[in-house]
Design a binder for these strands. Structure first.
Length: 867
RNA sequence: GCGUGCAUAGCUCAGCGGUAGAGCUACCGGUUUACACCCGGUCGGUCGGAGGUUCGAACCCUUCUGCACGCACCA
């Protein structure tokens, strides 16, 4: 064991260990293992994506859970992989070929798919490499891709099965159409976005009553050509007599019936609605109820399709809106234009407003919705935080059929074949003359099988259902709920036992990461840090620890680079504590503190270690990772380094110390626990230190997870150490107050009634840097003093002390104590309180009062001495 | 409109019925041979407002305000 470098240098150490982990195959899960199993499937990132801070958070948590499980003796499978991300990837490739002035239509389906595969091969590995840099302990031998041959087949087979069971149908329905990417999308992919738009009020003449006009409010005058009726509420007295008559549509000119429909809101606008069945979901339904024709006036790309009105034909829909308003105005039909804010559905991928559009699409009608809800309500699948079940329930209660067909090429092609009027749904082409449906499936229609189609039979037998899913709440419908559906519907366990078919037992929802001003991280705002840069600057361990420490359970995270810096600093602290240890000679990996005589400080740290382990386990069990990190931070920095290590220095410099061996053993024992408990959060540095210090084995990864300690420490001695530290703190306060540098030796006097051992006295004196530390029986006069549980500590400074200042300080302290005393007295003089409060509480208050009064008396006495 | 979450020190968060806490920041002082990616100290809060329950409320209930988010509507 050589001496460690002066600072932790994460990059080379991380690279070294990760390479070694891959070589020794420690991440590989053995499906024939006898150990109990623990498994996680990664939420597959987009194959061409790059790592974001969100991924870092998400995958750090998964890695933490997996690494801890390995140490706890589980056979762990963390199954990694990527998602083909149909639309996202196709869009990227289309953009790339556009550089060569090519469109996918020019290339043709086959050639375009070839290009996409090439693109995938070229860019597909990036995010995987990045996950490795983060330290993720995935079983890379089992890496999967949603377009792998067998996975592809499974998706297609799933479609055929559901079709055969009658859950999938083709329908001519109103769907969310994205004009930018020119495909249908599902309701879940539509993002309602507040828009500043305009509300136009126009007037149409009633055909049967010339000179009478109906005022109609609309935000979309560009769809006037598609209007096939005017609707009012049947109970609206203003318009009742007009029902059944007609209005004149200005362009192209036509007679539109005035119909009555309950859907109309009497209060809104003028209470009159223009009905455009082809371009609005509600209007479509009104059209159905009144047998109105649908006139589609838009091309798929969002331009106007209406040769009868040449002024508008071919225009983009938003340009046409202005133009249509202008046309109305020219005809004297536009009454007013108001500013108006409404929510417009945007296509997540295309970043443009979606267009409700009638088209032929494939739909999935969810079966087993009751069971899917029950699985969560009955806690077969448990959500953390639990409140997300309510969101899940609300979605299921209002569930709509899922539009699963996409007008794209990159994806799983719908296994439906057409010949003349015949339709067949099957995996392979039925024969000559049959043509396959051109559409591909929604990406989520493949990822919903991810929890088990990624596993072969033996793996599935061992590791399915998975233990926990870690993901963001933003995909609770898109992915989480649908995975539960898939599990229940396809029954991957081969039995109908619900508890064996659910995809996971726990779901941990992470928060979203925001910047320090509370905004979402986004490329366009430029507030999205590159995790690789952070790893470069602070190390993967620092990034992981820093982020985990500030990520509260189920709440959004305010990210600040400062926090990552703190993570890095923490790692360095641990490094240096270990470095300090290496300077004292070799580490005993089997150190048993209780085989030696222990100082009070050893007793204290052992007691604190036990408390730390208890807290950490509790916080793990309740998925409070930030609390785990905070607990570790506080223990390592506060208890271990600032207290125990500092006190240990006295033992280490004194060759004759009787407790030296015990302190060394305690050091080794505690550090071994710290490294193990910390390993899931900071895998690289703990591995390095574990090996470098010689704690044994080839890796820390299978070292036993620490259990609670035998309570062999002495509470009395631990308390003694605690008291000694209190005196130390008081001495530092006195130094601070009188500006006496810590490195300046100075005389302190302690009027103590406790009997300290000689060794303890000298350690205290050392820690205080006192020269000498005198034990006295009578209080000193005209001397600053602070009270501690070990006695009264005086700082004799003849002639130096500013008496007035000291008097002011004591008076301030007296005010505070007076407050404390008053509060306790008030409680104790309240008979109702005494009667109702538990006896031990009352006793506690009495003690508090007594202590406060003692302190008060002492301070008053001291005040007298000063004057 | 329905629903959810949040509001505690300048910042990030603990505490969730019985003396208001931590880390960071700020300020002051320190290179004491593990660490300046450091050490020590100090300052800093009527726990968003108002009611209520209770012997006792940051904590439970009601309500209001503000900020996020989800769903629905959106002519």
């Amino acid at each position: 064991m050589g001496e460690l470098a002066k600072a932790y240098d994460p990059t080379p150490i991380s690279e070294k260990h990760y390479a070694s982990w891959l070589k020794t195959g420690v991440f590989h899960a053995d499906e024939s293992s006898k150990k109990p199993s623990f498994s996680i499937v990664i939420p597959p990132p987009n194959v061409t994506g790059i790592l974001t801070l969100g991924h870092v958070l998400n995958n750090s948590i998964q890695d933490i859970l997996c690494r801890r499980a390995r140490m706890k003796g589980f056979e762990v499978l963390w199954l990694p992989g990527t998602d083909h991300a149909g639309l996202a990837t196709q869009t990227k490739v289309e953009r790339a070929i556009a550089e060569e002035d090519l469109t996918k239509e020019q290339l043709g389906r086959e050639a375009f798919l070839e290009r996409t595969w090439e693109w995938k091969e070229k860019h597909g590995g990036i995010i995987i490499d990045q996950l490795k840099k983060l330290g993720c302990s995935c079983d890379w031998e089992r890496e999967r891709f949603t377009m792998d041959n067998d996975y592809y087949d499974a998706v297609i087979e799933g479609f055929v099965t559901l079709y055969d069971r009658g859950h999938i149908y083709r329908g001519h329905r109103m769907v969310n159409w994205c004009p930018a990417t020119q495909t249908a999308i599902s309701d879940e992919e539509v993002i309602a976005t507040p828009q500043k738009s305009k509300l136009y009020t126009m007037k149409y003449e009633v055909v049967e009553e010339p000179g009478t006009f109906l005022e109609i409010a609309t935000t979309r005058p560009e769809t006037i050509m598609g209007d096939t009726a005017i609707a009012v509420h049947p109970k609206d007295e203003r318009y009742q007599k007009l029902i059944g008559k007609h209005c004149r549509r200005p362009f192209p000119e036509a007679k539109l019936p005035i119909v009555a429909d309950e859907h109309i809101d009497i209060e809104f606008g003028t209470g009159v609605l223009k009905v455009t069945p082809a371009h609005d979901k509600a209007d479509f339904e009104i059209g159905q109820r009144h047998s109105l024709p649908s006139i589609d006036v838009l091309h798929p790309d969002g331009t106007i399709n209406c040769p009868e009105v040449p002024e508008l034909d071919g225009l983009d829909r938003f340009k046409a809106r202005d133009k249509a308003a202008k046309l109305l105005d020219e005809q004297g039909l536009l009454i007013k234009t108001e500013k108006y804010q409404n929510n417009v559905g945007f296509s997540e991928r295309g970043q443009v407003p979606i267009e409700p559009r009638l088209s032929d699409q494939w739909f999935f009608k969810y079966p087993k919705t009751e069971e899917t809800l029950g699985a969560v309500l009955d806690q077969h699948v448990q959500f953390h935080p639990e409140r997300w079940t309510k969101v899940y329930q609300h979605w299921l209660d209002n569930i709509q059929d899922w539009c699963i067909s996409r007008q794209i090429w990159w994806g799983h092609r719908i296994p439906v074949w057409y010949k003349d009027d015949e339709v067949k749904c099957q995996k392979t082409c039925p024969g000559d003359g049959w043509e396959q449906d051109p559409d591909a499936l929604d990406t989520w229609f493949s990822s919903w099988l991810w929890a088990y189609e990624t596993m072969d039979e033996a793996t599935r037998k061992k590791f399915y259902p998975t233990s926990v899913l870690v993901t963001g709440p933003d995909i609770i419908f898109l992915w989480v709920a649908r995975m539960i559906f898939a599990g229940l519907e396809f029954e991957p366990s081969g039995t109908s036992d619900l508890s064996k078919n659910i995809p996971f037992r726990d779901v941990y929802f992470t928060g979203l990461i925001r910047d320090n001003r509370g905004r979402k991280l986004s490329k366009s705002l430029g507030n999205s840090p590159n995790p690789l840069d952070l790893i470069g600057s602070y190390g993967a361990d620092g990034l992981r620890f820093g982020l985990m420490r500030v990520a509260p359970q189920g709440l959004d995270i305010r990210y600040d680079e400062k926090q990552i810096e703190e993570g890095r600093n923490f790692c360095n602290k641990l490094w240096n504590a270990s470095r300090f240890r290496t300077m004292q000679g070799p580490v005993d990996s089997k150190a048993d503190p209780y085989a030696h005589t222990l100082s009070p400080f050893a007793h204290l740290i052992l007691k604190q270690l036990d408390g730390m382990i208890e807290k950490v386990d509790h916080y793990y069990d309740t998925y409070q990772f930030n609390q785990v990190a905070s607990t570790l931070y506080g223990f390592v920095w506060g208890n271990f380094c600032s207290r125990f290590l500092e006190a240990a220095k006295a033992d280490f410099t004194d060759e004759t110390s009787e407790t030296r061996a015990g302190t060394l053993a305690t050091f080794d024992f505690v550090l071994s626990h710290v490294l193990r408990v910390l390993h899931p959060f900071t895998p690289f540095i703990t591995e390095e230190l574990w090996l470098e210090l010689g704690y044994g084995g080839e890796t820390i990864q299978f070292a036993h997870w620490p259990e609670r300690l035998d309570t062999q420490w002495s509470d009395e001695l631990a308390q003694r150490a605690h008291d000694i530290f209190e005196v130390l703190d008081q001495s530092r306060s006195l130094r601070g107050e009188f500006q006496i540098a810590i490195n300046q030796k100075i005389r302190f006097c302690l009027k103590s009634n406790s009997k300290l051992e000689e060794g303890e006295k000298s350690i205290l004196q050392n820690l205080m840097n006192a020269e000498p530390l005198e034990f006295i029986n009578e209080p000193l006069t005209k001397t600053p003093m602070l009270i501690s549980s070990l006695g009264d500590l005086f700082l004799p400074l003849e002639g130096v002390v500013d008496i007035d200042k000291e008097v002011a300080r004591i008076e301030k302290a007296l005010v505070k104590i007076a407050g404390d005393i008053e509060r306790e007295r008030k409680k104790l003089s309240n008979t109702k309180m005494i009667e109702n409060a538990p006896a031990e509480k009352v006793a506690e208050w009495k003690t508090l009062l007594k202590e406060a009064e003692d302190r008060q008396a002492k301070l008053k006495e001291q005040l007298e001495h000063l004057k």
